[in-house]
């Protein structure tokens, strides 16, 4: 508790380029960019694979690889290979690790739609693309959103670890605090990241309430 008071009570922590607001903005900017890039790759790809059934192996392999690959090792290797100093190399592992959860859940969502519903949509005269966007996607939306949520949390979490390879953001408090044995900063930083992760989780729960059709919600 004293650590929390030390950390949050310190006026220096609330202003300047190394203050909490600046670090939070950095964290959000990096995570946001990585998340948007990953989503714009994985959602269309997952929908395509789910709809056509081609490339399912890619989905399974990527899911397993993402779970087994150690985040820290990937970060360190990519940044060393690409050159230290710029932010761009750090974004690569962030994106790579965010793609699989979205891809898998989008694929499973589209694939798992009741075949009767698919047939009914075709029977009503809808074409391939219309079936995908107007019938399959709304029904698959809860799973697609679950994938997006898992990816967002993964990105926030990886961005924290990325402070080790020189990325700004909230992870700085934890990494620097460990290096200098300032436990107030370690705990303060951990609480901030935890708050951010829970806010993301909560945000997606709200988004799901708003976007998922009530008819689909009752199915589950």
């Amino acid at each position: 508790m004293n650590w929390l008071i030390d950390f949050f009570g310190d006026a220096d922590h609330w202003s300047g380029p190394y203050g909490i607001p600046a670090r939070l903005l950095e964290h959000l900017a990096f995570s946001g960019v990585a998340f948007l890039v990953a989503a714009s790759i994985a959602v269309p790809l997952g929908m395509l694979i789910g709809h056509t059934g081609r490339g399912a192996l890619l989905v399974v392999v990527s899911a397993n690889a993402a779970r087994a690959l150690p985040t820290l090792g990937l970060l360190v290797l990519v940044v060393l290979l690409a050159g230290v100093g710029t932010a761009l190399p750090v974004l690569i592992p962030l994106i790579v690790l965010a793609v699989p959860p979205i891809l898998v859940n989008t694929y499973e969502g589209i694939r798992g739609v009741d075949p009767d519903l698919r047939d009914a949509a075709y029977g009503m005269g809808l074409r391939g693309r219309q079936v995908l966007f107007q019938a399959l996607t709304p029904v698959a939306l809860p799973l697609i959103l679950l994938g997006l949520r898992l990816a967002a949390i993964q990105v926030v979490s990886t961005a924290t670890i990325a402070a080790f390879v020189g990325l700004g953001g909230l992870g700085r408090f934890i990494i620097d605090g460990i290096a200098t044995r300032t436990y107030a900063d370690v705990i303060g930083g951990a609480v901030l990241v935890a708050g951010l992760a829970l806010a993301v989780q909560f945000g997606f729960t709200l988004l799901q309430r708003v976007t998922v059709s009530p008819g689909v919600r009752n199915l589950r």
């Binding site: 924290t160 670890i161 992870g171 934890i174 436990y183 951990a190 990241v193 992760a197 993301v200 989780q201």
Partner: peptide, 17 residues
Amino acid sequence: NVTYALPSLVLFSIFLS
């Protein structure tokens, strides 16, 4: 589920103390 959302480094740091 709430625990699962927390980054591993966060839990490690808290348990470090």
